[in-house]
Design a protein around this nucleic acid. Structure first.
Lengths: 233, 233
DNA sequence: TGATTGTCGAGACTGTTAGTCTTGTCAATC
DNA sequence: GATTGACAAGACTAACAGTCTCGACAATCA
């Protein structure tokens, strides 16, 4: 729940530190009802976009009340999604071995994305984000946490020597989340535990360094350079 | 140019085989002007969606003329994009070695996606597709050709023993196009020749079979099973 | 107690856009 | 010359995000 302190942007009156605050107080129940309505509609969404009117009507609330506390439709939707998705943030496995850590992380991530309520909401928000640059930005922040967690997991493995010193960790992160989003949004391939294992194993094997990197073709060391910084964008 | 034979859907009169066709003929110049206008607007798009009115106005054409030949805005946009993107379909390198084939294919694909005209149009169409299920379908067909080409390239390598016999080729395809779309749409990381090489090399190394698949951690053979069929969805 | 402030639900309003319908014109065929 | 159908122009409808207005209500202050 990242929303309990929303203000009307640029409205210092709502900051209780400056002035005692007169006037009627914010109705927490309405606020809660809006988030619940938004999540319910997102979860039930069949592809048609969720409208503000529908959210307000479902919540039994005036439209203005929605816009008093959120700057745009996208912000409401993301708050509703966050409210839900924070419940199933993948934990950060630390088994001491990269391959098993990675397997667990990817499997948990795939699994979380597939939970029916989350999945439908996530898809709906992603669709909105395609048209709403502000929401797209919020989505980037939303995903950055998970990207960072994966990056750290990989960095730990690299420090232990399980990945080559010049491994491009960001590329691995993008391979994982690229496959996830690609299959999630297009739905043309599975995102199950088997795929998670295959992906984890081949990523580790493919970046393991000079010990077993060749296969049938010698893999000449080609000026790869490491890049750090957990999340670039 | 995949559009020269569009009909008004469900309008058998336009099929010249049934009846000689009376009345004024279709204006090819207008048709061409619409596609050109659409592409021009797509290429110049800054994020704001391209409207049908703008296309018609730019083409010097009535809106009805657009809708006479295309069923929806998405269809026009995709036709315009196809018109352009067919020019830079990556060829199918066949150097005899998987690693170099893959490097060339991925580099060419990344490069084509980045060409300024194509890139802007592609992004705009992808944004539209998020809201327009019909366009999303057309996009899948549009990308299927390229997916198939990559799949075949990989299958060739597997036959030559450069990939393990149980390699999941679809997963590799999705890693390539997943990274491509993910970085292309979010723009948080590069899609250059260096990345193409790294990606190709690690994919080959990670799926090379039992010769050098371990790295520091033994990679126990875990019941992976191959799945063929070039494109599943 | 009464004035002030700010929220509430309701819903009218504005502006934008996809897609349809209408009108008067023009070109091809019968 | 009649019919058919494409044409440009643009009015029209329906959805939707976001704003504005209204009368009611709740909290604070003088």
């Amino acid at each position: 729940m990242s929303d309990t302190e929303d203000h009307r942007p640029g409205d210092p009156q709502t900051d209780p530190t400056t002035r005692p605050h007169t006037g009627r107080r914010r109705n927490e129940a309405a606020h809660r009802a809006i988030l619940d309505a938004a999540l319910q509609l997102l979860a039930a969404s069949d592809g048609t976009p969720v409208t503000i009117d529908a959210i307000a009507r479902t919540a039994g609330v005036g439209k203005q009340t929605v816009y008093r506390w959120w700057p745009s439709k996208g912000a409401v939707l993301l708050d509703a999604l966050t409210d839900r998705a924070d419940q199933d943030v993948p934990d950060r496995p630390d088994t001491g071995a990269l391959r098993t850590d990675l397997r667990a992380f990817i499997a948990a991530t795939f699994d979380a994305a597939q939970r029916s309520t989350t999945a439908s909401a996530l898809r709906a928000v992603a669709r909105e984000a395609a048209r709403d640059p502000h929401l797209a930005d919020l989505m980037r922040t939303f995903t950055a946490t998970r990207r960072t967690a994966l990056h750290e997991l990989l960095a730990r493995g690299r420090e232990r020597g399980e990945l080559a010193g010049d491994t491009d960790l960001e590329l691995i992160v993008d391979q994982v989340y690229g496959v996830l989003w690609y299959r999630f949004l297009l739905g043309h391939g599975p995102l199950d535990a088997t795929v998670a294992e295959r992906l984890a194993d081949t990523l580790v094997a493919g970046n393991a360094g000079n010990i077993g990197n060749g296969g049938n073709i010698g893999n000449a060391g080609n000026g790869r350079q490491s890049d750090d910084g957990p999340t670039r964008g």
